[in-house]
Structures are given as C-alpha cells and as structure tokens.
C-alpha cells in the first residue's frame, strides 16, 4: 500500500492514463471545455510531460453560446502554456441559426455532439481525453476509463471491453476511436481540493459575484449578452451568484451564493444537498438522456 494521500493517488492514476495514451495511441487530442474539470485535466497533462509540452493538441467545441468570460479564459490559458488549441464550431448549425432558445434538445445534438464528431473526423483523432467523472451521473458511473467508440462514435454500454488493473487496451481498427477519462475516479470535492492544493487557475464565474440574471423555470440564468430574449414578465436583476458547472450560458443555472474564495466553495460543496448536475438544464429532460446522447457520440 502506498503512503500517498488520496489526492496524490488520484493524480498518479490520471498521469499514468494520460501517458499511456500518449505512448500507445496514434493521434490523441485533449478535449478542453474550459470548466474546472478541464482545468484540472490540462494541469495534469502539463505535469505528466514536463519539461516537454503535452505531445497532443487541445480542442474546444464551441457552441458560440458560451459565457464571454470562458472564451477569454481559454485564449489566455492556451497562450500561457504555449499549447495548440483547436476551436471547433459547427458552421452548418450557425448558418441554420440553431440556438438554445428555440431548438431544445436538438441544439445540444447539433452544436455539441455533431460539432465534436466533425472535429474528431476532420483531424482523424484516434483518442480523445474528456474530463468526465463517474460521480457526475449514473451512466457515467458505468463507463470504462478507456471507452471504445465505433466508426460512428457510438458507445455500446452493454458490451464494454473489460478493463483490468492498469492494463489499458488501446487497440482499435481504422475509423474507430477511444474516449479516455483520466478523472473517472475523482469526485467534485476532489476536484476543488486539488484546485486549491495546486493553485490552478479557473474561470472567475465559479466565484460568487453580483451578476445580471433572470429567473426562468426555476433556474437562475445569467444574461451574458443581448442575444438573450426576455419573455414577458421576466426582468433582469442583479444577484450574487456563482456557477457549479459551466456550459452554454442560456442552459446553465447559477446558484445564489456568498462563496467568493476557494475555501468557501469547498465548504459549500461539502454541505451541498443537491448534486452539481441539477444546475445543468439538459439533464432534467428524461431518465437515461445522458446515456442516449452518449450512444450518439456525446462525450
């Protein structure tokens, strides 16, 4: 048994996974969503290879509806670390005017899943790292660390490859790919404690601040730009809020909070009575909706 702390063990496991992919997979890419989990994953990639730069590019799937602060943060981070950051946008979706207000579930499919698949196909990536964790959602809890995808990027949850010890099987045929989740065994709490320990920079949206918001169907939605149309009866108010997860601003609910330091955030996380996914509007749609999206190629 190791004398390492729990966080040390999680860090070692993630670095091991990231290095295995770099060594065995032909053309890997690291998906970067700008959120806290991605920030931790990027940090681990830098550590895994230092003084060498990570030997793979990073890719951000941009729906064009992300918070402004996220995009600024992304560009700063890429510059600071000197890494290649590919921005992938579904241009066809933009031309068709697909937006989160009018298109519901198909918006996520077209601007996220399809855009992701386009990006992976365009560059012929054979392995893609994602920052997903098993404690986020029930179908994620069932997924392997090295998760195999067929030619159509589809996941077959009933027929996953066995995954033993640290002996990851990276063999694939042409056109197939693997999604790799180095943070599988981290919990939300682990992420925050690691961010604090390692002093990892994160998007300021995670910290509580006065922000312009409206209340919509029980969620607190931030008015990030003037594309947000207000329904009758809705009015913009200033509220001290923060975000537990980040995504497209019209689909991401904030929480009222006073936590503007990491310690306060950790405190809040430990005593939270709701799981973080409650702030993601899309997850409420139907039971098994995450699994369905994953089968279709979503991360």
């Amino acid at each position: 048994m190791s004398k390492l702390t729990h966080l040390d063990q999680l860090e070692a496991e993630a670095i091991y996974i990231i290095r295995e992919v770099a060594a065995e997979c032909e053309n890997p890419v690291m998906l970067y969503s700008i959120g806290k989990d991605s920030s931790v994953m990027l940090h681990l990639a830098i550590k895994a290879f230092y003084p060498e730069k990570p030997p793979f590019p990073f890719m951000h799937v941009n729906t064009t509806w992300k918070f402004k602060e996220m995009i600024e943060f992304r560009d700063q981070v890429a510059k600071k670390h000197g890494i290649t950051m590919i921005e992938q946008i579904n241009e066809e979706g933009i031309k068709q005017g697909i937006n989160p207000f009018d298109y519901g579930a198909s918006y996520t499919d077209i601007m996220k899943t399809q855009a992701l698949k386009q990006g992976l196909d365009k560059y012929g990536f054979t392995a893609a790292f994602g920052g997903a964790r098993r404690d986020e959602e029930k179908s994620r809890a069932k997924e392997r660390i090295f998760s195999f995808r067929n030619k159509n990027h589809a996941w077959d949850p009933k027929n996953q490859r066995p995954e033993m010890w640290k002996l990851y099987n990276t063999s694939i045929n042409k056109g197939e790919s693997i999604r790799v989740f180095p943070l599988s065994n981290w919990t939300e709490k682990d992420i925050w404690q690691y961010i604090k320990r390692e002093n990892i920079e994160i998007v300021p949206l995670y910290f509580a601040k006065e922000r312009p918001v409206v209340e919509r169907e029980g969620n607190i939605i931030m008015v990030d730009d003037d594309r947000m149309k207000l329904a009758s009866g809705e009015k913009v108010e200033m509220k001290k809020i923060r975000f537990r997860t980040l995504g497209c601003y019209p689909l991401t609910g904030g929480v009222e909070s006073e936590a503007d330091t990491l310690d306060e955030i950790i405190e809040e996380t430990l005593s939270a009575i709701s799981s973080e996914r409650t702030s993601r509007v899309i997850d409420h749609e139907a039971k098994g909706s995450m699994e369905r999206r994953k089968r279709e190629g979503y991360f």
């Binding site: 029930k138 179908s139 809890a141 069932k142 949850p157 009933k158 599988s184 039971k287 098994g288």
Partner: peptide, 20 residues
Amino acid sequence: LDGLIAEREQGITIDVAYRY
C-alpha cells in the same frame, strides 16, 4: 446504481457501477 437503460428495464445489473 443501475444507471443503464437496459438495466432498469430488465431490473438487473449488467456492468460495474462506481460510487464514491
């Protein structure tokens, strides 16, 4: 814990679920 659609339909566990 039975997070897969097929598991809930059949009332059985098919694959490992990890809980923290």
